[in-house]
Design a protein around this nucleic acid. Structure first.
Lengths: 227, 227
DNA sequence: CATGAATGGAACGATTAGAGAACAAAAGTG
DNA sequence: CACTTTTGTTCTCTAATCGTTCCATTCATG
């Protein structure tokens, strides 16, 4: 899927993001790739974006985000044991259903504060209006618990998650902690630490080393049902 | 399903992708298959693509991607605990099933505390999974304001409303007050009075005589979008 | 020998890559 | 707010790599 240069750049970006949480600038990438001009970096970034490996905010400095890594490679190089949760997969192509701006996305189970994702690997799926999703690969999780209640995310809601390996500060992510607990939390970086913030005064923020936390996706939408 | 050459090529591509994450070029594949011209590779790639084993970006260098491998190779579905050197499975492309469990409902405008519904009776509509709705006639409103924030209903959310003329105590309703203001509130009865409760400590409950309040619908679902 | 399929060859055009510079847009500073 | 620095964008050239296409040739088979 990638050329050697694209691969090299992707690795570098991912590494920097993992270590410091800060996107490298074009200048820094230029140095890392041993180039003498930034224009090349620009093209490579374009190629990576086109292929869905990274995502970026246009005209913003240091606003890169890694969506996936080539072939199984684990992001952040953390060799933590992992349990049932989200299986890494090849990009699944989501084609809008004809005549309907709706998509079927897989329902991967429940997510709760402090509790692993229940791997209810059933064939469950959810129909979701495309208007709620952006580009990319998505899945749904049923929210369990009240740790995000102040962000308007209630017990029983369905969280629509876009797969990603990194996220920017302040975004709500599905974070796999030490390979065993997956939780939905605000992601924030403080120095060399990763901080996972609940949205509930009764819970405390938790701090981790970067290698202990793996971002599996970010919150892209929410569905709730009143009976 | 595959000819010997096709099979050989697929294996080679998969191996290279696995080892280095970098797609082989036509030249390299030519060498690997012991061919003396790239045109043969071109045909093989075409065949593999046609059969859904690989996918590629047209006119892009080294932009191959393996979608699945031949034979009963395990494709996803493993729910066993897995450890770090995760061997990748190649999930099949997920094509959404024709979703007939979807409904188009009209988007009637915005609703806010203390402000009439904006009658933007345009062509706007929203596709919504039927799972979020019950029986009956529904429409959607964009929520404006923070008066229901403690009920997890935020500014910008889409409220799915089921038309109804009555509601039980404690339900969230669209209430038309004195024929002019439509608001989203908790409905409660106190003696001969109707009480409309916001879910926000900064706002006060409001009391009305029964004839002043007309229930237009009850909250049936909620959609939110994070960008 | 005819035929269709697979292979070889080479020309062609497009993409990728490197460099340099000028410019525009954000972020930071006082 | 004005000014400076940092950062991202765009353009032009040049060269090498890569993918595409068309056509001739070979091969296996009946």
């Amino acid at each position: 899927m990638l050329t050697a240069k694209q691969h090299e750049l992707l690795l570098f970006i991912n590494q920097r993001l993992d270590e410091s949480g800060i996107s490298p600038s074009f200048e820094e990438m230029k140095e890392a790739l041993d180039l003498k001009s930034k224009s090349g970096v620009h093209r490579l970034i374009g190629a990576l974006e086109e292929r869905g490996f990274i995502r970026r905010l246009a005209n913003r400095a240091r606003a890169l985000e890694v969506m996936k890594m080539p072939e199984g490679r684990n992001v952040g190089g953390n060799n933590v044991a992992r349990f049932a949760p989200v299986k890494e997969s090849k990009p699944q192509i989501q084609i809008p259903v004809a005549a309907n701006d709706v998509m079927e996305i897989p329902l991967h189970g429940k997510i709760a504060a402090g509790v692993p994702i229940e791997a209810l690997e059933g064939q469950n799926s959810l129909s979701v209006p495309m208007a709620l999703l952006g580009a990319g690969e998505h899945y749904a999780l049923e929210v369990s618990g009240d740790s995000m209640i102040e962000a308007g995310i209630l017990d029983g809601d369905y969280a629509l998650i876009r797969k990603a390996n990194t996220a920017r500060d302040g975004e709500i992510v599905v974070a796999l902690v030490r390979g065993e607990e997956a939780t939905l939390k605000y992601l924030r970086r403080e120095g060399q630490q990763i901080r996972l913030d609940p949205a509930n005064g009764s819970y405390e923020p938790q701090y981790y080393a970067p290698h202990e936390v793996e971002v599996q996706g970010k919150l892209a939408g929410l569905l709730r049902r009143y009976h």
